[in-house]
Structure formats: C-alpha cells, structure tokens
Nucleic acid binder design. Structure first.
Ligand SMILES: NC(=O)c1ccc[n+]([C@@H]2O[C@H](COP(=O)([O-])OP(=O)(O)OC[C@H]3O[C@@H](n4cnc5c(N)ncnc54)[C@H](O)[C@@H]3O)[C@@H](O)[C@H]2O)c1
Ligand SMILES: NC(=O)c1ccc[n+]([C@@H]2O[C@H](COP(=O)([O-])OP(=O)(O)OC[C@H]3O[C@@H](n4cnc5c(N)ncnc54)[C@H](O)[C@@H]3O)[C@@H](O)[C@H]2O)c1
Lengths: 214, 214
DNA sequence: CTAACAATGTGATAACTGTCACACAGTCGT
DNA sequence: ACGACTGTGTGACAGTTATCACATTGTTAG
C-alpha cells in the first residue's frame, strides 16, 4: 500500500469507514464494479469527495470504468487496519458495555474481544457469550500485559473512567476508546478517542432549536 | 439570547456540549467563577477557542474576571436548546436501545422519553423503568402524531432503519438520531444525525496502524 | 487501428475553521 | 480616585478541508 506522508483529514477516515460498510453491502456477483457516483449516492457523499479521499492513499480504480467492489473494500480495510485482529477488552459491563460486547460489528472489523472487566462482585466470574470472561478491575494491568491486548474500551461510570484508563495504560495498552463523558488523560504515546453520544443529542437539539427560531 | 446569523461551525456546537458537561461538574459554591483557561484545562480545548466559540452567540463573561459558572451553564443550555423538554421516543428496544432508555443523561439534558417501540411480540406490552411503554411498530405514526413527539432515536437492525424512519416522518417527527450503520433518507425538512460508533472504532484502528507503520 | 466515450485522479481554487495577539473593560489595592 | 492588573472579546492571519474543472487513461464499438 502506498501511503503518501501528507496529513490525512480526520473526516476522510470517517468517510472511508462509511465506504467500507456500503461496499460490503453493495458488492454482488451481478455488480462487481462500482463508480464513485454510485457509491456516493449510497453514502451521500459527492463523487469528487470519494475520489479525493482515495487519492490520498493511491490509485484504486480503472479510468472510464470504476472500482472493483471487492478489491476496493479490501484496500480500504487495509488502509484502516481492520483486515487483521486487534486484541480488545471492554471495561465496565453495564448496559452500554453489554450492548457493545454483543455487537457483531467487532468481529467483522477485526476487533477480537478476549476479556471484559468489572468491579461488581456479582458480575465477576460470569461469562459473556460463552467465551468472554468477566474479571475484576484489579487484574486489568496484568491481563492486558499478559494477553498483549492493544485496544481498551471504557464503559464505566464517569468517576471511574480516569482510574480505568490509568490501569489500561499501566498494562501497556495501545489505544483507548472512551464512552464516559469526560476527557481522560493519557500519555502522548497512547491513541485516545472519546465517543460522545451525548454531544450528538445536544447537536440535534441545537439544530431543532435553530429551525424553530428560524 | 443574541444569535448572530452567521454560520456556526459544527465543531463549535460539539464543544459547547462538552463545556456544559464540565460546567455542571465544576460549578461549586466555593468556585462560582471560572476562566476560559481553567475550563480549557478540563475540556482540553484552548482558552482562545472557548472564547471564540462563545463569541458567536454573545458576551457572557466579565473582563478581568471570567464567567459565572452557573450562569454560563444556563446560557449554553439555552443556546443548545436543552433547557426545556423534548418529547422523545426510542425505536428498537434491543441491547443498545435499552442502554439508551436507562441513560440518565437524557433527563438532565431535557430529552423526555415518553414511549418506545419494538416489533418483537415478547417485548410489546412490557414497560421500561415504570413509565415507558413498549408499543408495536405499527403504532409509530399515530402515537408520534398524537403525543407530538419531536425526536426519534433509531436503534433497530440496519435493514429496518429506513422503514422506521419513514414511519417516524409520517407521524410528523422533527428530528432523528440514527444509530444504525446506514444513511437513512428523510425529507429536507427533517433534521437528521447519524451516530457512527463503528467509524470511531475504525478511526482508532487507523490511528494505531499509522503509528505502527510510522 | 482508431476514434468516441466514460469515469478516474489531481492541481487550482474556494470555503471553512482554528490560532494569535492585543485592545478593551471590569476589579482591586492603595 | 486612580493605576496596575487580569482575563475577555475579536479582527487579522494561518492552516485545513471541500469543491470544481479538466487532463488523463483505459475500454469498446465500428
Ligand atoms: N447507557 C448509555 O446509553 C450511554 C450512552 C453514552 C455514554 N454512556 C456512558 O457510558 C458509561 C456506562 O454507562 P452505562 O449506562 O452502561 O452504566 P451502567 O451503570 O449500566 O454500567 C456501568 C458498569 O461499570 C461497572 N463499574 C463501576 N465501576 C467500575 C470500575 N471501577 N471498574 C470497572 N467497572 C466498573 C459497574 O459495575 C457497571 O457494570 C457511563 O460513563 C455513561 O455516561 C452511556
Ligand atoms: N450494540 C451496539 O453496541 C451497537 C453499536 C453501534 C450501533 N449499533 C446499531 O444499533 C442497532 C441495534 O443494535 P442492537 O445491538 O441493540 O441490536 P439488537 O438486536 O439487540 O436490538 C434490535 C431491536 O430492534 C427490534 N426490532 C427489529 N425490527 C424492528 C422494527 N422493524 N421496528 C422496531 N423494532 C425492531 C428487535 O426486536 C430488537 O429488540 C443496529 O443497527 C446496530 O448496528 C449497535
């Protein structure tokens, strides 16, 4: 894969993720090739934007024809790094944590959840879907280190998010996806993303308010 | 509230949401005033950015002093439109839907969930937390219309998201928050936001891959 | 073989967003 | 009362991202 070393817009990465999703669904035997216009229709992105996004990473299409659906899907998965297995853990097996643990998207995109953690004695020792054990929070550091877990997903109450992040970092985690509504602090070397479902709702409220106020 | 009619960056709205969250937590009796520097420290946003964001909507601080924590919180809630009650419904009472239904953030930000919908006969007729009934999908149009529900949250499987969106629109919904990984199509007049948890994970994978590849 | 065609890849340009420096307006101590 | 001080509000600037137009290149029909 040719990666031009210029900086890639974050929005481009987000769109690539969308493209992969649609390519997986649109690719059929009767329809092995797709144009940027057709893909754009589905993803609600302009054809030029799609071509620009892809051009950051190389040339994947055939001029005058379009893109091989399956091949493009594989190429983008390669770019995103979701074509292989990331050992992953979920900390906080509450409502949201359980939803994520049962979410089949993970497997499809190469996130292999191998263990979960919680502090509730009633949950510790039980299992999620056969093979995912729930271990006590105090084991985080050891297990993350031992199992070479690279991604940690935080779904604990807000007040515990920072403590959990610290334990994950101590165990040698590489990246953290945090769902608690707080900006946890981690060393520079750790890749961190905060998911803010709440701000999406606030944004919706703002847009509706705008419309009402004209 | 003074609203300058120039276009506000979406990123600004997202940050305002963050500010509200921290103001609610930082505001104490012993600490009634906060500076953009202090708030920026917590939110991991530059002080200048905070002041710029606020300046789109008016002047809320006192020069040489800072912002009245409680007052600023109220002002931002007013800007975002989360200082009053939005009648809301959740469609699809699965793992994710249940997590959202039990999420106390909603009440705090003025989203009042008054009913839920599902197509599973085993779920229809049951209740969530005392007072939220689960009704059949076919009732969506009537109930949304009757109860003047303004916001619909979609947490059904992907294949049903568009159908559910159509029903919500038919009932006169104002805004939709969609968690299914598909871009549902709605009339221009409907405010739509797609929440893509999946793309957040893909983004994390990308960042980790970048780091690995150097 | 060649010309008409179709859809990509990309440089130029426009639009948007964030950063910075500083004028300005309140506050507080003397 | 007034000057030193502090942190806001904002215009100018820089950096980033999206849009557009079209040159380019592979395909296909005649
Ligand atoms: N529920 C939602 O829809 C939703 C949406 C967005 C964000 N969030 C955020 O996600 C987080 C979890 O939400 P939830 O609704 O699943 O809450 P929950 O109360 O259902 O689950 C929290 C879980 O974390 C466990 N826990 C508590 N302290 C812990 C610790 N120190 N270490 C490990 N586990 C611990 C609890 O035992 C519980 O199982 C919260 O921060 C919430 O703000 C939730
Ligand atoms: N679970 C997650 O963590 C997660 C994360 C991101 C996005 N999502 C998306 O959210 C959606 C729901 O995920 P989930 O894990 O909760 O799935 P789920 O299977 O647990 O729940 C789906 C629910 O929708 C109901 N349903 C099915 N068809 C319906 C219809 N036509 N009308 C109303 N209700 C209907 C089902 O009865 C079920 O209760 C999916 O589109 C998924 O891709 C889930």
């Amino acid at each position: 894969m040719k990666t031009k070393d210029s900086k890639i817009p974050e929005a481009t990465i987000k769109r690539l993720s969308t493209y992969v999703n649609y390519l997986g669904r649109l690719g059929t035997d009767s329809n092995p090739v797709i144009s940027s216009e057709m893909l754009g229709e589905s993803c609600q992105v302009s054809p030029a934007q799609i071509r620009k996004d892809l051009s950051y990473f190389g040339e994947f299409g055939v001029r005058g024809v379009g893109y091989d659906t399956k091949k493009l899907e594989a190429e983008i998965k390669d770019i995103l790094g979701i074509n292989h297995s990331w050992p992953t853990t979920v900390v906080g097996v509450g409502k949201l944590g359980q939803a994520l643990l049962n979410f089949d998207f993970f497997r499809k995109h190469g996130f292999r959840i191998i263990v979960a953690f919680d502090s509730d004695p009633r949950k510790i020792g039980t299992k999620i879907t056969d093979d995912i054990a729930i271990l006590p929070t105090n084991d985080i550091e050891n297990i993350v280190n031992e199992k070479k877990i690279s991604i940690g997903i935080i779904t604990t109450p807000t007040d515990w998010a920072q403590d959990v992040a610290d334990k994950l970092v101590a165990g040698g985690i590489k990246g953290i996806l945090n769902f608690a509504p707080i900006k946890v602090k981690v060393p520079e070397s750790i890749t961190l993303r905060n998911v803010s479902i709440t701000s999406e709702l606030d944004n919706l409220a703002y847009l509706l308010t705008q419309k009402k106020r004209q």
